[in-house]
Design a protein around this nucleic acid. Structure first.
Lengths: 188, 188, 188, 188
DNA sequence: CATGAATGAGTGTTCATTCAT
DNA sequence: CATGAATGAACACTCATTCAT
């Protein structure tokens, strides 16, 4: 996974994968009939774990829905976005066109549960009178877009780039969530 | 551009570019000293140019800053995001790590001008008393993230996917802009 | 080696080297990371090695320094100059300007050891009172020039040239060495 | 000629030749049917002039034959060896194998007259009792070899090589001539 | 079950040569 | 006469894949 995340599918050489796995190149092809199958296996293995955990916790959150939204976005970043694992998401967006099966799997097992969670939070706010009767479907994207954006940004520039005045992710998420909540609050 | 968008930078073969241009491989290198320079020319023509034009227009916008922001985001989508050219942006996010020089070129010629424009609009709103004294730097990302998100979404699934219940981009942009503007307005 | 000698460094195609070695092009690059490294290996094997051997023997020579000089020059010719391997020396003089790195490699691994050996012999003659206090640096060239000359002559005309009334190399070397020794002997 | 001398036949690009000649690449091929023919013309044009002049002067030399030999070698170096024109000689040795016609032309029009001149000088020394009854044929090579050697050395390393502790040509020639004359003088 | 030596199709790039204008 | 735009065959080097051991 590390190598695919670092370099993408095409630029990752089987030889290096084998080396990092501590086996010979031949052995790799003994277990995976092709580089494509290896890639699929890598993605399948490394996806969908943390999402489920997050959902369970969110359902028992005690505070206001605005606080919940902010907490959830920050938590997602801390547990997933900021880790190497989020490279899988970047990978998926980059390579989805070449691996339709993977894309569909990813959509079903990662994106949709995540969207459902966001929907749950937004609906909770509306139901409790904290938010206006906003357009939930579109707001889901307003919540997810900056997270995806951060992930792409994090993984698009390699280990290079000393001059990177990079984004402060948590600060940005807090700021964005604040904007959203202000835009959603009831009474305006 | 078509080929780069379809296949990415690395996977696009010079020979095929030449063929589609109706010339021989040698001729290509007569006009562009390398594949990288060819790509830069593609970026300049199809990405940097429309961005520059949009900037010029935005500077003479007459209405409120909230309207300007909404108009700008929608216009960006109509003129660039919705076209095949936006595939270049997806490609850059996908391959930046492997081609640092291209990444820098893109940053300088596309991303930075775009950020400057957004900054200009936000500052305009603050200066005219339409917006609160928001954190401009982070808000720039709040504006750009959904646009990037839409571009990634549009190009991440190839020509496939009939079942795509895809996002209605213009509606989402309008919605997101509305949320942002509501979140930024002065007096709350 | 045969191919490099026949065609020169630049004109020798890796594919043909591989073919003559009875392997595929890929295999060649499995063993030598580049054409330059392949060439260096050829030099080490066919040029630097015999030179080194000759040096070892010369150091244990028993006779007079004049005899040693003559023996050394003749031996150099028999073991190296007269063989196909000496084509490498011709090649290096011809292409050194276009391949500075190879030139330096050759200088370090072949020319300098050879010069050191000649210097050793001349100094031996002076130290033992057999030669005058000649200018050693220039005399080194007086010793080497005719050998280089013979090598160039041998390889400058291809396999052609029936009418070649060519030089009798051993006779010339003997003659030249005799002239040099007469010119160097002490007491005049 | 400059370009061929600097880079050799293969490494000289027609485009650059045309540029330096101040014409277009097409024009070049209007006058010379191929790069090979161009090369032949270059060599033919630039050879054989100075040799003839030198011969005439040598025949009227007044001093001893040893002095004549030294003077002749130095003069050859000053008028030809040290100039860019000597690159032609290097070129011929390097490329003779690929251009047999040129090689023969060069042999007939340059080398043989030069050898004849050296022979004349040596014979003069013998006839006047200044030199022993040496082997004239081989001694001719003993005279020419260092000159050829110097020319090769001068042109084998391009404009590179700051660390070149290069040979002092005139000093070496003087030294070598001295050794030869000492080795040839009558009475030993 | 694992290896690693071997492969060969494929890639960006160069350059002598052509030819319509 | 001269041009310069166009060509396409070459070439060094890469890497996923195979297979005898």
């Amino acid at each position: 996974m590390d190598l695919f995340v670092e370099k993408g599918f095409a630029a990752t050489r089987s030889e290096e994968v084998a080396a990092r796995a501590g086996v010979s190149k031949g052995t790799l092809f003994l277990y995976f009939p092709s580089k494509e199958e290896l890639f699929k296996a890598v993605v399948m293995e490394n996806v969908a774990r943390p999402v489920a955990e997050g959902i369970a916790e969110a359902e028992h959150f005690a505070g206001s829905s605005g606080e919940l939204l902010t907490w959830m976005m920050l938590e997602w970043w801390r547990r997933y976005g900021a880790t190497k694992a989020s490279g899988i998401s970047k990978l998926m967006m980059s390579e989805a066109g070449n691996f339709p099966e993977l894309a569909e799997f990813f959509r079903n097992n990662v994106i949709q549960p995540a969207q459902a969670l966001v929907r749950f939070v937004l609906q909770r706010g509306i139901d409790r009178g904290e938010f206006r009767a906003i357009d939930v479907n579109n707001t889901i994207y307003s919540v997810m877009a900056p997270l995806i954006f951060l992930v792409m940004e994090k993984h698009s520039t390699g280990p290079c780039n000393a001059a990177k005045p990079s984004i402060n992710a948590e600060q940005f998420i807090t700021h964005h969530a604040d904007l959203l909540v202000r835009g959603m609050v009831a009474g305006h």
